[in-house]
Amino acid sequence: MSEKLLEVKNLKTSFRIKDDYYAAVDDVSLSVNKNEVLAIVGESGCGKSALAFSIMGLHNRAKIEGNIMFKNQDIANISPAKLNKLRGNNMGMIFQDPLTALNPLMEIGDQIGEALLLHNKDLSKEKRKDKVIQLLTKVGIPRPEHVYEQFPHELSGGMRQRVVIATAIANEPELLIADEPTTALDVTIQSQILDLIKELKDDMDAGIIMITHDLGVVAEMADRVAVMYAGQIVEVSDVYTLFESPLHPYTRSLFNSVPNTAEAQSKLHVIQGIVPSLQKLPREGCRFSARIPWVEESAHEEHPELHEVSPGHFVRCTCYKHFNFPDSSKEEQQHGIS
């Protein structure tokens, strides 16, 4: 049994819109072990990024409820000073868009060096520079001495993402959160970056949370997968089980809407309706029920729970037992939007 690094318990992250709070992450529990990649999959608005930001404590004005246990310490609502000791040191984050994630007016060396400086005040300037050069080499940047003095706009997208990664791993964090790290990149660069993350994981024995919407990336990277819809986890499992026998209607719908898996030129599956906005999220019953209206109401639970269907494989609500894709009646697919 590997060591538990992070355990999130009943996390609820709510944002204030006008006078009310709306939960973007609603009662999410999950855990990450050392040397494990947990992928969190879902479409925009499902709360996956809000979840990542909550773990890193990066929400400025959100209400956080529940526990985030990092190495047996609850970091959900700790003081900024304590949090800052962990961030960048024990936990690192990789962002989606490497151009905007870097300060345009700061040299690359200073940006990576800042992460070192903040957590190791005794390191001399020269040693810090040496370390930054080492990091740049480690993430596969050619001519690190030269890049050290360059500015973000002088680098290509792939190189910038390597810099972002170098910053995140500067202090060899135990937990690395990657928020759509390859979405903004070309496919050949994507495979290089994914390889790099894999390598670093083995190197540092780190736990990784990989936020993505790309099932291909999940298949390549993840050990375990959590599928999120409307602020909740609807299915969790190890990656092999999930890809072989996905159960939740949302998971299955996602798989069927990706062109990769479908037979060429055949119709893709379209999920009816649209992802509801934060204010309009259904808070009662099965949150996905509105998008599979042909499934009888009695199939859903009143208060959908996660059920363990096989060891380590959890599915929310009972509707998966009664779910079938409607026979490809054209009407259904063509006018997905009502």
């Binding site: 050949t188 994507q190 495979s191 099932l215 291909g216 990336v217 390549e220 092999y240 890809f243 898996t261």
Partner: peptide, 22 residues
């Protein structure tokens, strides 16, 4: 070839082969 090889494979069981192929 490089472009085609870079496409993530949707089958997690083929990870090893995919890595090797790449």
């Amino acid at each position: 070839k490089r472009l085609v090889a870079a496409i993530p494979d949707i089958d997690p069981k083929r990870r090893q082969e995919q890595t090797q192929f790449r």
